[in-house]
Write a protein that binds this DNA or RNA. Structure first.
Lengths: 283, 283
DNA sequence: CTCGTCTTGGAATTATTATTCTATTGTTTT
DNA sequence: AAAACAATAGAATAATAATTCCAAGACGAG
């Protein structure tokens, strides 16, 4: 009988066998299902102390469930802590297109276009979930409040990020807000950004490697105390430094290709929230 | 200066000081904010290996932020893991999926910014799933083949769809393909589209109400037998009529607000598939 | 160019932690 | 009641991991 490799499996195996376990092992079993966090992080000695058994008993427990040693079993408890929010989507999608399975190994999408699409859909769903998890209400509320009371909104984004800036400009204009798109068409971004006053707001979007134009422009407006809302990929980003609000959109480590889906979704949400906030004020 | 005791504090301290850090320490700082899970669970040697620095540098990093040693700092990262595993976190995730279910009923997002974001995330996930389900392998393969053998690619999209067109232009250019963005800056779209020849491909993106400029331009190039790939919302769309390939991105009836997430995801998939196809051909 | 300062690499050392082993205890069987 | 068996405690040992230390390298200032 092979040792369980996932937390769920281990948990149910413990549940199934805990009756036939000896006294000490049962105490460990009960503790394990009740305090999986401790099982994941504490040392053998620490656990032995908490449970009230000898360290060797814990080793025997691990051996009893098929593991080479405690450390091996602990990995299973640790995997629970870092478990991806929803492997369900990935699996569901993988099962639909068999080609998907192949691409899992090398980390990059395989050759078939349908497999590529499956991969992107799955990754983008993951990115959206991460956006949801990691974006605090505080930032959203603050950003909307800033935007609502601003005299004008300047959109700053170049290269890959430009579509987001453009979208925001388009949508904000349709809300009858004064929105300016810094497109670097006529002159540099820095020069255009000089239009922004302290009563305005600048929304800057940039991911690494950060567009130097955008970074420079942000530094300039921050120096003039113009409020900045940053949409970027890390709190270490040069945009984050002087920003009043910083939205962080984590990129998935295993994917070389960066998706615009999450930033777009955030942009849409901001626009609609702002719309609600303005409507509420006018009524 | 006391060392931060919570993950949030540590993270913001790292963000604040990362500029003044030395080369190696900054690399560690970047890794730390990007891979907090690894920081929580791996060993010094393992991290050193992942980051590409010496173990001693990691100790110095911990000392630099006021900790007695690495282990003490690691506790802070671990505290974050157990915080996320608390029931409330899982409830938040569950509530999001609940929001998706609810949205089918009333269709409009609530007032709070966080609720709006949840709504958008849920709806966009739904849109991506629908994209995945409704997009056939045939269309994808045909589109990629068309693009691969084209002499040039013209991107056509205005208003809300322009970000998608721009993105495609940006990404295709980076593949060293001849990509032309019909931006209507100098002259009408129709005039610019006249550049397209029968050996080119036009990718037209438009959703209702269909931008007249784009519709006209598409009709013109179709009449000249230029192959068109349409990304639109209905097979009845004016873009679909003469298109060689038509990607249909369904609108959710009950949702007043249109999201760009699904078209963006499709665009990204097309670009990457095309990239693969070109690489395969060159080898 | 040279000195002084700060940073880094890497082996040596110390510490912590897991694991093993054996004596002991308790329990059941005859 | 004694023998056999199973389970456990606890010290001893092996392993893994963290930390220290010093030499070498990089960078600036004078």
């Amino acid at each position: 009988m092979p040792a369980p490799r996932t937390y769920e499996d281990l948990r149910s195996l413990i549940a199934r066998r805990h009756l036939e376990l000896s006294d000490r092992l049962r105490r460990i079993a009960e503790f394990a299902v009740q305090h999986p966090n401790d099982m994941a992080l504490k040392t053998v000695a620490g656990l032995a102390n908490s449970i009230g058994v000898q360290p060797s008993s814990i080793i025997r427990f691990a051996n009893g469930f098929g593991y080479d040693g405690f450390s091996e079993m602990q990995q299973v408890f640790r995997s629970r802590l870092v478990a991806e929010a929803t492997p369900s989507y990935r699996e569901r999608i993988a099962s639909m297109h068999g080609a998907q399975a192949r691409s899992k190994g090398n980390g990059s999408a395989g050759g078939e276009p349908a497999a590529v699409l499956s991969q992107f859909v799955a990754d983008d769903i993951g990115a959206l979930e991460e956006l949801h998890d990691r974006t605090g209400e505080r930032e959203l509320t603050k950003a909307v409040a800033l935007l609502a009371q601003s005299k004008a909104i300047h959109l700053l984004g170049q290269g890959r990020s430009f579509p987001v800036a453009f979208y925001l400009h388009y949508a904000l204009s349709r809300l009858d807000l004064r929105a300016f798109l810094v497109d670097s068409l006529a002159g540099t971004a820095a020069r255009q950004a000089r239009m922004a006053s302290r009563e305005d707001v600048v929304i800057a979007i940039s991911f690494k490697d950060y567009s130097p134009d955008v970074v420079t422009a942000v530094e300039e407006v921050v120096a003039r105390k113009v409020p900045v809302i940053a949409i970027t990929d890390s709190p270490l980003s040069p945009l984050a430094a002087g920003a009043k609000v910083c939205f962080e959109i984590a990129e998935r480590r295993d994917r070389p290709f960066r998706s615009l889906v999450a930033p777009m979704c955030l942009a849409e949400s901001l626009v609609v929230s702002l719309g609600h906030s303005l409507t509420a004020r006018n009524s």
